[in-house]
Nucleic acid binder design. Structure first.
Lengths: 186, 186
DNA sequence: CGCCGAGTTGAACTGAATCAAGAAACGTGG
DNA sequence: CCACGTTTCTTGATTCAGTTCAACTCGGCG
């Protein structure tokens, strides 16, 4: 297996055997704006590959909700740790726009992984990629102040600013909407 | 494969085939206090399973150093994303005590994974576990104030308070040593 | 013994939160 | 298509958690 796969596991989907197997376990679904893909208190059973639309993952901190993640086209939304640990999810995942997704049951995914070393490897590289994205997200949050976090997000994911309300962006940046507004007005 | 492995991949090491294969690629090493297992600016080539001692992972933010992670007995220390992306590490990993480790080269590990689906699966579950630990760490940091973070760490990893200086604990909790001192004096 | 880093304590400062109130944008029903 | 209520965004004043700076104590070690 070519080493390029390590840096971009989704390339493995060009392998037709893997792509076909995925087709068998994915179902196309459409959800309206505000629909909840995953809910607090329930175990997350599925993951969703976004075809069109955008989701946000959030939880309630005391009274107000805090956004921890957005997913857009080609990204996968799920509460991974809820499935793996078979624990009730702490998070909701909400459609911010009308949503077209491919739904995959985690159990089907596990079965797929068991079928061959290639699938198993795909699974590993996939999780590895998730992990690395998370590391970067932490580094961004942890190592910078409000203004720097804003600038970084603006560079990395400018599309979010077109599609997501400021209050959600603000809580994703771990600041208040007022602070975000003040940062912007400069 | 039994489902218990999903919740605790290290159980796979009870499988003698896997344990043996690991033995072949691990080397026992001993490092003095203050030794750097990984260094900023170099690609991280190895991971280390701590046999005895404790490490901290840190980086320099402007002038002062910030601790992002500790590893103790049975845990694995490495700058994973540096290896995966083949990028210079942003972090150092330092021995806080005299250290006994098993060193594994990532390349040997990859070769091992290629040898059979069981190894590949072990790799996946291992990364999965890393990922979930990181999610919890984020949640702890992100969702709580200084006092809450301190309390949580005290409950989750009380041993750290016996072995690690307050200045390192403070930067791990993302507060100043002064603040940590004030929190403690209550 | 004296030095140095670690920890403590106090006072002043600051980035961001909170509170409040007005303006703009949005959506829903008539 | 407009009118109305609701939510979002902006702007200002105030507050607060945690930082910074500084002075002092303590313990370990050459």
């Amino acid at each position: 297996m070519n080493s390029k796969y390590y840096s971009n596991p989704s390339l493995l989907l060009e392998n037709s055997e893997i792509a076909e197997a995925f087709n068998d376990i994915m179902t196309y679904k459409k959800f309206p704006k505000h629909h909840l893909l995953c809910e607090t208190g329930k175990v997350c059973k599925n993951m969703y590959i976004i075809q069109s639309g955008i989701t946000r993952m959030f939880y309630y901190k005391e009274d107000k909700d805090v956004t921890v993640h957005f997913c857009t086209e080609q990204e996968t939304a799920s509460v991974f740790e809820s499935y793996v640990k078979n624990e009730k999810s702490k998070f909701n995942i909400e459609a911010l726009e009308e949503l077209e997704v491919m739904e995959i049951a985690f159990t089907d995914l596990e079965n797929l992984f068991s079928r061959s070393p290639e699938f198993e490897r795909f699974g590993r590289l996939f999780v590895q990629q998730l992990h690395i994205n998370l590391i970067e997200r932490i580094n961004d949050l942890h190592f910078h102040n409000a203004k720097e976090r804003y600038d970084k997000l603006l560079t990395k994911k400018p599309h979010l600013f077109q599609r997501v309300s400021q209050k959600h962006l603000a809580s994703y940046l771990n600041i208040t909407p007022e602070t975000l507004s003040r940062i912007r007005s400069k």
